[in-house]
């Protein structure tokens, strides 16, 4: 019952290896802040190496992009990357409209799109049926919205993430086969305090 979902969909390209994609995006990440959506995106982030500048979510489905917007508006000198899945992004589709209106120059959203709800049995998401998240982002006012199918484009995206302009949304078509679970820390106060301490210093991080 755990056959590769791609085997059932001959029309779909195999998709890029998600762990390799995330490792490439986070190469020499410098001051980059990362918010990861729950599930496989958070595991990919953990597999690339735990950092105090990471905020992996274990719930709050549909909220990753808006957590990223909050960070981007309050830390305008740092690039902020939201790393999430197609199912999580579809649940927060309205946030693309909000972000398209606010146009934070330092916010980048990467949707790791396997066209599946991978945590719950690989059921198809709407992107498997042609829903185009990059087109939706463009229609919401996020001018730089692209769909990526090659590792060369991933490497260009890594450069753009650290570039001066945004907002940006990239849909990266990845494979649907599961990767070994790499679990990030899941204690909420620890994760929040760790990011705040890295950004604000210990004294200010203890205030609100």
């Amino acid at each position: 019952m755990t056959a590769s979902p791609n085997a059932h969909d001959a029309t779909r390209q195999p998709g890029l290896p998600r762990r390799d994609v995330v490792r490439r995006l986070l190469t020499d990440r410098g001051p980059l802040l990362v918010v990861a959506g729950l599930g496989a995106s958070a595991y990919d982030l953990a597999a690339a190496g735990d950092s105090p500048l990471d905020f992996p979510l274990w719930g709050a489905m549909g909220g990753a992009a808006m957590v990223g917007l909050g960070l981007a508006l309050t830390q305008p000198s740092r690039p902020v990357l939201v790393l999430t899945g197609d199912g999580e992004m579809l649940m927060g589709l309205g946030s693309l409209a909000t972000i398209g209106v606010e146009k934070p120059a330092n916010l980048r959203i990467v949707v790791l799109d396997n066209e599946r709800f991978g945590e719950t049995g690989n059921q198809k998401t709407h992107t498997a049926s042609g829903v185009d998240l990059a087109a939706a982002a463009r229609a919401c006012g996020i001018a730089d919205a692209r769909t990526i199918t090659t590792l060369a484009e991933v490497d260009h995206l890594r450069t753009a993430i650290h570039g001066p302009t945004g907002p940006l949304l990239a849909v990266i078509k990845i494979g649907a086969d599961p990767e070994p679970k790499a679990l990030p820390p899941r204690d909420g106060p620890f994760l929040a305090q760790r990011v705040r301490t890295a950004l604000l210093g210990q004294t200010q991080a203890l205030e609100a």
Binding site: G63, L71, T74
Partner: peptide, 20 residues
């Protein structure tokens, strides 16, 4: 910030707190 739905504001406030 105008939202499309109220839950966006909860996540936005969380990100704002992380950012200080």
């Amino acid at each position: 910030v105008t939202l499309t739905t109220e839950e966006e504001g909860i996540a936005l406030a969380a990100g704002s707190f992380l950012g200080g």
